[in-house]
Amino acid sequence: MNLKIPKHDINLEPFMVGPPDFNRQTVLMQTERGFKSEVVNIVKLTAIEKLFQIRISEPCERENFTFLPGQFVMLELPGCGEVPISISSSPSNREFIGLCIRKVGKVTGMLHRSEPGAMVGIRGPFGTYFPMQKMVGRNILLIAGGLGIAPLRSPIYWVNEHRSEYKDITILYGVKEPGQILFDYQFEEWRKIYDLNLLTIVQNPDENWKERVGLITDLFEDISIDPENTFAIVCGPPVMFKFICTYLANIGIPRQRMFISLERRMHCGMGKCCRCIVGSTFTCLDGPVFDYWTVMNLKEAI
């Protein structure tokens, strides 16, 4: 008699060997295998934000890792936890990825205590991206509030690397206080070399502040927008993009040409844990980048 249920050991399957490629969504099976990476540099930006430059250790995994502006990774500190973080560096930089991280809780707090040389895990890239190809030949208006500048750095690098394909590029960047401004060391370069127009504004200025004072929407007074020919990318707290997108829609930019990045709780990045569902949409799969038309039609989005 033969009554033993045959054993199917998937540990031995071919799809279990070799580095995982998270871009091959439908065949990827090693869903939890992270790329071990070294924190090669940590740049302190403000009291609560640091830029972490992270390099995937294994050369073949590093070569395989490609992403598009707006995508995120799941960053893991073994034994501590795993969090979604937008990539804040250039897609063409194949040596390391930049993650700009605010210290808010367990994982981000531990990360802030780490030093260069620390080993972390990353899985990804995950999620949708800003459709840079669609914007070719047009003006781009990038609007950031606070930490929202972090995910915008990736499209900014992209634009610079493909500068001739785009027309006027404008960045509007607002924060509460001057001390919260991130990446000001790059502003010169963005203006001079990237040839883009950067305007900043703060709500509560200090004595050294020379630029505009007010809310980010006030900056619209200082620029002219050609609604027919402009795409907008907006990142920041939800209240902010609601105001901004409404304004932009009123001056005639189609809602499908405005892109925002949503934030939700995430535990997998792969459409499995359900924690990121907005209405009936998975932020990790169908987002985090959405066009504004879609967001308006999502229940509970804003």
Partner: peptide, 21 residues
């Protein structure tokens, strides 16, 4: 549908499903 037939098939579930009569 979720665990095997959509994006990022889940290996933990797959292993159990495959080995259960």
């Amino acid at each position: 549908q979720v665990m095997l037939k959509s994006v990022y098939p889940n290996p933990y579930y797959f292993a159990r499903r495959r080995n259960t009569l």
